[in-house]
Design a protein around this nucleic acid. Structure first.
Lengths: 187, 187
DNA sequence: AGAACTACTTTACATATGATAAGAAATTAT
DNA sequence: ATAATTTCTTATCATATGTAAAGTAGTTCT
């Protein structure tokens, strides 16, 4: 749990009481490589923090498995469109490696916001950062070519190639595995 | 200003005091069609609410004008990546029609968050909704074809074709105007 | 170690989109 | 109203990516 508190400290320091309240609604959970952390059709009521390992969010578009995103150590993961709307998610979360997550009960968290103003501010900042990331990703998908996106990815996340199968990277980049192979062969 | 308060009411009701404080840091501004509301290189310190008209956020990628997004009445507009990071924005905001905006001073707003908890919650919810929108847009760019994206857009925003030039719609969809013309000709 | 399975690459062909240029339509300015 | 400008469409050709199929490499299972 210290990993989580240490990470939070960097974003927005919160009081000892808020830390204590946060830990009370959090628990550590473990998943083996390949296991689903949360299933398609499930309404997301948990915010995860990756302590060790990595996960991806994926869904099916006409029987084809598409990776929406992946996250490594010290990142938060949630299916925002379900968590924030209360609707069942069309997406699943899966462990790509043996993974340790800290699971935060989102309903209890939202209740804590009434008592701990600093906790709400912390999560506002976390959501803001996620929002900025997605805005940048849209720009990338909107007007960079697939090979620009590939180069950018491996520059930003050096170990992604070692830890994530190429088929997941391909759909994350918005292309087929065949197309990714071609791009890689050109280099 | 009543338009803004009415819209806010639908998202998260706030106290009379918070409303008053919000109005004190807001002012109405007007822009003629084609005018820039904010320029490239400027650090965004304003959150706009569209009272009347419509605007777009755009930038240049190698001399080509690219529309990142447009917003119509009753929507908030800001260049999030600048507003939330304090860095100068590479994007501009432009009025597509004669437009009336309500400009909210973001630094003053963030200060008000310390006093008015409900105001922070309101803006947390606004950001959450924007975040969900961008996540859905990524899905759309990632694995829908250009003509699926076009059909989806005109279904969701019926009047967009009447109010926004096709060249802006094209780059918003991630394609060239020529390609959009072809797609439209197929129908 | 060998078999079975999965992941990745390569090839060939089809299709969608980009680039360029020219023309038509619509808008704006005089 | 006419001219000038901008926007949109159409046509042609080039290129990138998709699809399908086959082969290679790597992993997992027994």
């Amino acid at each position: 749990m210290q990993t989580l508190l240490k990470h939070i400290q960097l974003i927005h320091p919160i009081s000892k009481e808020a830390e204590k309240a946060l830990l009370e609604i959090s628990k550590e959970v473990h998943f083996q490589k390949g296991m689903d952390v949360q299933l398609i059709g499930h309404t997301c009521k948990t915010i995860y923090f990756v302590k060790e390992g990595c996960v991806r969010i994926y869904y099916f578009k006409e029987d084809i498995d598409i990776t929406e995103s992946f996250e490594f150590e010290n990142a938060f993961v949630a299916r925002a469109e379900s968590l924030l709307t209360g609707k069942p998610s069309l997406k699943a979360i899966q462990a790509i490696e043996d993974t340790s997550l800290i699971a935060i009960d989102s309903n209890k968290l939202f209740q804590l916001f009434d008592t701990y103003h600093d906790l709400e501010r912390l999560f506002r900042k976390i959501i803001e950062a996620s929002y900025v990331n997605t805005v940048n990703r849209i720009e990338s998908l909107q007007f960079h070519t697939a090979d620009e996106r590939y180069l950018h990815l491996i520059k930003d996340h050096k170990d992604v190639l070692k830890r994530v199968p190429l088929k997941y990277i391909a759909s994350y980049l918005g292309i087929t595995p065949v197309s990714l192979s071609r791009i890689r062969a050109q280099k």
